[in-house]
Simulated scan of single mutants.
Amino acid sequence: MSPIFKKSYKFAFKSSFYISFFATVCIFGYHYFFTLSNLVYPVVFLFVLFGFSFFVIQYRVEKFIYRRVKKIYDDVSLLENTSFRNQPITTDMATLTKEVKKFARDKKLEIETLKIKEEYRREFLGNVSHELKTPLFTVQGYILTLLDGAMEDKTIRKKYLQRAEKGVERLIYIVKDLDMITKLEVGDINIEPSRFNVVEVVQNVFDLLEMRAAKKNITLSFDTFYKQPIFVLADQDKIQQVITNLVMNSIKYGKTGGTTEIGIENLVDNKVIIRVTDNGEGIEKQNISRLFERFYRVDKSGARSEGGSGLGLAIVKHIIESHNEKIYVESEFGVGSEFSFTLEKAK
């Protein structure tokens, strides 16, 4: 704080002036009525009394305010706000009020952020426990049934072991996805860009998921026939995982007999945009902002019956952002959804 004339000085100045003026008038009146001689003494007395009053009032006011303001600073410093505690103590009320209001706003924002993080932590732990609990209990149930005597029947033994194996595979899938998203969030996974044909990668994904799509009679296709390869610069394995996750989601939430279509378009001179469009269930507007959260599911029951870790879209978002690219989503409930992301063109 560096005002030209502190407000406490102004207060002391005015107070001193009033006191000095009153005292001088009294003395001047005394001399006028009783001596009527020399006016020098009243004037000298005016300045002496003014100076004395000014310094006494200024000192006492600053000391009075300083003690109370210092207590405020000391109380605030207990909250360990370093930026506030390290500021010089001011006795100017306007500055102090401004600083305290700023401190209160910052603390309110900090508390709100902590509440959001705490809610997110609770929700995350609940989702993790739910995702792990289902396959664990499934595996445990089949193993206990076998131990209780069903193991003697070779047919039941084989069937239950196969089902237990699927539960273990689901657990491994969830743990792998958790490991990957953790590494993505802390930056432990390196992106290794290379030049590759993204049309070929999309076709590989279609071939991989063809049987899964056929179970719901969903058609996987390009929006047009691409005669020429389209080369991009990115991590091929991770971009294939992005496309795989998006297509798997479109199958999971797609309508029986529906379609999933992928288009690749030039966005600007050095960018392409890849669109994954389906005519499935669509997403309600209030859910769109949370789609990329870990374990967030639009359909809490149906999605789990379809399997998956609940981390697919969160992984997609982190992979795309680790390439310094953008991902977008547009959806209309009951009509379908479109996920799109950008990639850098390769020369």
Rank of each mutant, 00 (worst) to 15 (best):
N245H: 15
S221N: 13
D106Q: 09
R157E: 12
G187S: 07
T145F: 01
L343W: 05
F54Q: 10
S322M: 14
Y59F: 12
K285W: 00
T277W: 04
I156N: 11
S221K: 15
S305E: 01
K238Q: 14
V43Q: 03
Q58R: 10
D278A: 07
T155P: 00
D148R: 12
I262G: 07
R294G: 06
Q286P: 00
F333R: 13
A234L: 07
L267C: 03
T155F: 11
K154I: 08
A12P: 05
V175L: 14
F333C: 02
Y18K: 10
V247E: 03
L343Q: 10
K71W: 01
V61D: 06
K347G: 04
H130I: 02
T224R: 15
T97K: 13
R60W: 08
G258H: 12
F21L: 15
I172D: 09
D278C: 06
I218Y: 04
K107T: 08
G254V: 03
S289R: 13
C26H: 01
E306V: 01
F222G: 04
L184G: 03
E99N: 11
E185Q: 13
K215A: 09
T145L: 14
C26G: 02
A104E: 14
P193W: 01
V242K: 11
R121Y: 07
I243Y: 06
E169C: 01
R290D: 13
H31T: 06
I4Y: 13
G51K: 03
K347R: 14
V186A: 09
R297I: 01
E192M: 02
I143W: 00
R157I: 00
V232C: 10
E165P: 03
R60Y: 11
D75S: 09
E261L: 12
M151K: 13
S53M: 02
